[in-house]
Design a protein around this nucleic acid. Sequence first.
DNA 1: TCGGGTCATAAGCTGGGGTTATGAGCAGTG
DNA 2: CACTGCTCATAACCCCAGCTTATGACCCGA
Lengths: 313, 313
Amino acid sequence: MSSGAAGTPAEIPVPLAHRVPDLGAMELLLAVARLGSLGRAARELGISQPAASGRLRALETQLGVALVRRSPSGSRLTDEGALVSVWARRVLEAAEAFDVGAQALRGRRDSRLRVAASMTVGEYLLPGWLIALHGRRPGTAVSLAAGNSAVVAQQVLAGEADLGFVEGLDVPSGLDSTVIGRDRLLVVTAPAHPWARRRVPLAAAELAATPLILRESGSGTRQVLDAALAPHAGPVPPLLELASTTAVKAATVSGAGPAVLSELAVAEELGTGRLTAVPLAPDLPLTRSLRAVWPAGHRPTGPARDLLSLTRG
Amino acid sequence: MSSGAAGTPAEIPVPLAHRVPDLGAMELLLAVARLGSLGRAARELGISQPAASGRLRALETQLGVALVRRSPSGSRLTDEGALVSVWARRVLEAAEAFDVGAQALRGRRDSRLRVAASMTVGEYLLPGWLIALHGRRPGTAVSLAAGNSAVVAQQVLAGEADLGFVEGLDVPSGLDSTVIGRDRLLVVTAPAHPWARRRVPLAAAELAATPLILRESGSGTRQVLDAALAPHAGPVPPLLELASTTAVKAATVSGAGPAVLSELAVAEELGTGRLTAVPLAPDLPLTRSLRAVWPAGHRPTGPARDLLSLTRG
DNA sequence: TCGGGTCATAAGCTGGGGTTATGAGCAGTG
DNA sequence: CACTGCTCATAACCCCAGCTTATGACCCGA
């Protein structure tokens, strides 16, 4: 209630960006680690050797730790540097995924491979595939259009996309498809919620009777949930109905109540312990398939086929 | 048309940091998404509203995509913006992990919880635990010392650390311990390598006879491998012997040959398809346990107990 | 002892990102 | 209706982070 603006004073004083070195510094650290020399790292990044020297020193003072042992014959990471470089690599890998996604989103019309993807696939799976695709077929230019399953189907049918990715129970007509994965919906709570320690699986009837934090009606997630709970007196009116997955996650993390979300959407939070998954009884088949689709009869060829083959791991 | 791409001469890529918006911009985008207004996002980040406006505009021009639909009554993400914000969230989550790790590494002497961790744990597992710990016990100050298992054991015994994390087959004497996980070693190759498509499991004898890319003798990984292959005529001399896990990964990705690495170390690469795991026969038990350790008889209490309980999440 | 590699320091320039001040557009309200 | 309060955008100014080039100290191998 009261949308709590006044209640929280200053929970987030300093932005993360000010506490963490920037991507360039991390990239520099990894280059030094890989090449064994400040100068060579500088050359690779297209900056001068003094610039690299200064930047690295600034990085070390910011972190308060010596990261590199310098010597007239080169530079090697310290133990702490090795640790930091792994954390940095994580960040840069996520940034690389961001980059390929954004590049595809820019969507040049003359791209050799035009992909249309649903949000779920585009958000969580596609960047990884694009990185892998780039590794195998470096020249491939990809453009990406995002939308719900209906839009994707329409784009593929109209020939505006070579390959589409949709989620849902039904295959749009006029398209051939193959299942490339399965998206399971999870019931998640904040770690403090009683259900977080729950061992006995949650049954459909109980879930149906519990007010939940949900996406609005019409979202893919909501459809699957409604269908699964319909046999059990349907879902009770939601505790909160929010417009974005992000909002649902935020509300759940802050302890507002249990939510139902795609496992893809909450993988991070589960990993870091901000959310906990509740065990589900077998009568709760909260799952939908992810499909690749293409115009009926026209099996994907060339880059589309390459991408498709990547999606089966 | 036809300008640009074809002309690119050498392998001198623009640094990732120049192609990707900086962390501040990503943070801003997420704040706008969450708060629904540029001005409020600006306030949360401690900058002025025009600064946020300009930064966001710059972000959009850099990506070539409209991310936010502005209106006199607030701002909402476009579809593309929603996509980008998820990718950005990934980056920021990795950055947050970096931050908590780095903060612990700075190691103030008066920290309430002093942790000593082996490289493997410190690199891949500890940041997640620290984030979760911070979520549950926000006040806890953590300091982190990193080193090999012997160093960790010594620090815990000397009372310089409240809790230690080690990997290996044996428990250092004088310490009580509990197994918190299992680190499996994987045989990995570049996707182009013949073994990458292999279906028939790799047997110990075959692995023992194959030149591999390995860490130097004495590393934890190497010890486990040597022990496992000793019964099968020991490992053949390595193809390459490199000083860091990073170097081994780089050599493997570039196709130099198969490598043996911790599953924790290659999780990213497997996910993004840069490396492929080779199925192993049951006679290859390449596994070691990860243990939490503390002085014999002194069960962890307080924050140490909190952290320990998180490791079984 | 010379040449080629390492890294650090010094001095100077530039621009990205910040600031304040101001104005326009739209939504409620008395 | 005009007033108030929110939204966002533009303009003019400022500062310092991070770049550059020039130079020097150190170490190693030929």
